[in-house]
Design a protein around this nucleic acid. Sequence first.
DNA 1: GATACCTGTATACAAAAGGATACTTAATTT
DNA 2: AAATTAAGTATCCTTTTGTATACAGGTATC
Lengths: 114, 114
Amino acid sequence: MTAEEEKAFQDNIKAVQDTMYVIGGKWKLAIILSIYKGNRRFNDIANSIPKITNRVLSKELKHLEDNLLIKRTIITEYPIKIEYAVVDYTFSLHDIIKPMETWGKQHKEKIKNK
Amino acid sequence: MTAEEEKAFQDNIKAVQDTMYVIGGKWKLAIILSIYKGNRRFNDIANSIPKITNRVLSKELKHLEDNLLIKRTIITEYPIKIEYAVVDYTFSLHDIIKPMETWGKQHKEKIKNK
DNA sequence: GATACCTGTATACAAAAGGATACTTAATTT
DNA sequence: AAATTAAGTATCCTTTTGTATACAGGTATC
């Protein structure tokens, strides 16, 4: 490997690791999918994702908001409501999420027949 | 959402979570990239990925082998060598890894200008 | 015989992620 | 005044992931 190739390779490793940091873990993509499908309120999102807890959902929502992947809006009615929404930038994840859905389904079959 | 839509949605959540289980975490994709780029030996892989430790590399290699994503070959020379290699199935991850490289680089810029 | 090489394993520990469950806050309705 | 509701927080705990470092085992080389 030339020096430039080596650098490009290291950049690629770093880039996938960065991506993993932002959308990795058990819940983040599931949360984005849930909001995308129409769940906008905290409890609706919580109920749509099996086994997630309030604490974890709260933390993950903050992380996603910090990374500009969702928008949090306070509605000052009574009782106060919060709405979460996807934004234009969220759709940039489409090329990652879609293949992951496909791959996950296919891989389960593959491993079953091992 | 109709019942079928609801089921498809739950299946998708599960599929991305399954994929995350197989290739998620800080190291797995980096290891696959490293082997793909030509590193076949344990120490070569270790040295090509900044900050990874032996213990973690060993565990992750086993996980990837269990999931049919790499092949481990014992070469009975002296000293005994082990070679890791990608297989045809590994390339099925291309549609996931490539977008993650692209997205990671782009996202870093996006966040920097926040 | 001592030393070096390679691919890990062993041990002990620290940090991060995830889980369970009760509770808070604040205004509005009853 | 009590009850209701939404969106979390607080507290405590368990599991997973990651770190540090030493060393084993078997042959080959010095």
